[in-house]
Computed example of a mutant assay.
Amino acid sequence: MKLGFHIGYWSSGPPHGAVEAIVEAEKLGFDSVWTAEAYGSDAFTPLAWWGASTSRIRLGTNIVQMSARTPTATAMAALTLDHLSGGRFVLGLGVSGPQVVEGWYGQPYRKPLARTREYIDVVRQVFAREAPVTLDGEFYQLPLPGGTGLGKPLKPTVHPLRTDIPIFLAAEGPKNVALAAEICDGWLPLFFSPKSDAFYRAALEEGFARDGARRSFADFEVPASVPVIVHDDVEEAASWIKPSLALYIGGMGAKGTNFHFDVFARLGYEDVCVRVQELYLSGRKDEATAAIPTSLVEDTSLIGPAEKVRDELAAWEETVVTQLLLRGDAATLAAVAKVLG
């Protein structure tokens, strides 16, 4: 199983030591480095800036939010970064959730799967550069009908370095995971657990079986963001992860529409999720964090003494996951990479 480095999105400002960590990840032989965006920092700019300090490691977005840009704008950025990096770019996309899509971007959220299919269709047309880009879709129309009537189909002026820049899709629900298998080159899971492997494997198999599917299990990538904390005290290690889980389960999304909540509910923690969400949405964040059992952390993370982490890694190696995406500073990456072997 390969290793990658996930920087994520910024909190209140740029993360300290990011360049040093990326350089160390490349030195350690990591396969990839990833950036993200929510409603603060964007994913493309940090990746370009920090990626300029590397020469081999793949540069990916995990994720670019589709509502933030038209599909042609996203394709332009991807073409540009792929050239600048010498063909090392991976475009990770995601729909985000209705709170961000409608509240931050002012875009409609309805029919996210159909919208994703059209979006990726346009992006692939730009990458291919075989003909002027056109689409008469429900969500995207190129050229735009009406208006001045002067719009015309266009091809990108830039000739792509690669016409098959890989596209990965972030997804949590089974229908979206199946869509990733059908039309993409990889799937970016969040809060994956070996216990959920059969569920997601079935969703991927459904997508691979569809007419025109691009990939199969043999050449499909699944880089999963997995917290790894090597520490003698399991409870203390879990305490560093619980606040983030409380945020995602309790505060990321509205009550009744929280895809992260659904992931943990499927793992058997629905009662916990209900309690965490109630506490978090009422402003009792510390209590929400305390309501998360350590077992939930252990199901979706690798934490504890080195021997325990190594033993539990075996279960991850039997799953659909092809790469573990780690977080931390340069020293942490080196220490964890040594344990994971």
Rank of each mutant, 00 (worst) to 15 (best):
M1K: 04
K2V: 02
L3E: 06
G8P: 15
S12P: 15
E20K: 01
A21T: 00
A25D: 08
K27F: 02
W34Q: 03
A38W: 13
A38Y: 14
T45W: 06
P46Y: 00
L47G: 07
A48P: 11
A48V: 09
L59A: 04
L59W: 05
T61A: 01
V64Y: 01
M66L: 12
T72F: 10
T72Q: 09
T72S: 15
A73L: 14
A75S: 08
T80V: 05
T80D: 05
L81Y: 00
L81T: 01
L93P: 04
Q99H: 04
E102W: 04
Q107Y: 00
Y109W: 15
K111F: 10
A114D: 10
E118M: 00
R124I: 07
E130K: 15
V133Y: 05
L135G: 08
D136V: 00
Q141Y: 10
Q141A: 14
P143I: 02
L144G: 07
T148A: 14
T148C: 05
H159L: 11
D164F: 07
I167F: 05
I167H: 10
F168K: 00
F168I: 01
A171S: 09
P174Y: 01
K175D: 05
N176R: 13
I183V: 11
P189H: 05
L190W: 15
F191C: 13
F192H: 11
Y200L: 12
A203H: 09
L204E: 14
A209Y: 15
D211C: 03
A213D: 06
D219I: 01
P223F: 02
V226T: 02
V230K: 07
H231P: 03
D232V: 02
D232L: 01
V234T: 04
E235V: 14
A238F: 02
W240M: 12
I241F: 10
I241H: 06
P243C: 12
A246N: 08
I249A: 15
I249H: 12
G250P: 10
G250M: 05
G251A: 15
K255C: 03
T257K: 11
F259R: 08
F259L: 14
F261A: 02
A265H: 07
R266M: 12
L281H: 14
T289Y: 02
A290R: 08
A291T: 04
V297M: 08
E298K: 07
S301M: 10
S301R: 01
I303D: 04
P305H: 03
E312V: 08
L313C: 02
E317G: 15
T319S: 11
Q323P: 05
L326E: 11
L326F: 10
D329V: 06
L333A: 06
V336P: 02
